[in-house]
Amino acid sequence: MKPGFISFVLDTAFRVLVPFTLVYGVYVLIFGEYGPGGGFQAGTALSVGVILSKLIQGKEKAQFNIRGSMALILAGIGTFIYAAVGFTTMIFGGKFLEYEFLPIPVHELTELHVWGILGIEIGVTICVMTTFIAIFSALTGEEGPFKDA
């Protein structure tokens, strides 16, 4: 018996939906400065991918799985990345989130802005994605006293 899959329809739906949703989320994050996109949208798309994976394959056996407790830790890390970029610019002599003072070797000054925006958007993406996964797993009772509900 194949582990995790329940029926042919769910098997096909998983294979069609989930990998493309995750890849599209990463694309929206990376491409967010040159086209429509950004950190919040990418985080929502990635969380939808993981939640669909949990819904289709079950909470324990899901292939793209982030457990609820791990998700909360990652959400804190995402917010920390955002603040860390801000404090890095402060350490190197600028104001909070003033990207010209980032310690990256570049040719033009505006390139530093692009790197700074990419850094904080990675933080936003991790925070939004894992927060929604944490809310989902708390509401569906993955851990904690509402397990039977």
Partner: peptide, 9 residues
């Protein structure tokens, strides 16, 4: 954009 995400949470 941020208001939508905050409303979801």
């Amino acid at each position: 954009l941020t208001a939508i995400v905050v409303s979801l949470s």
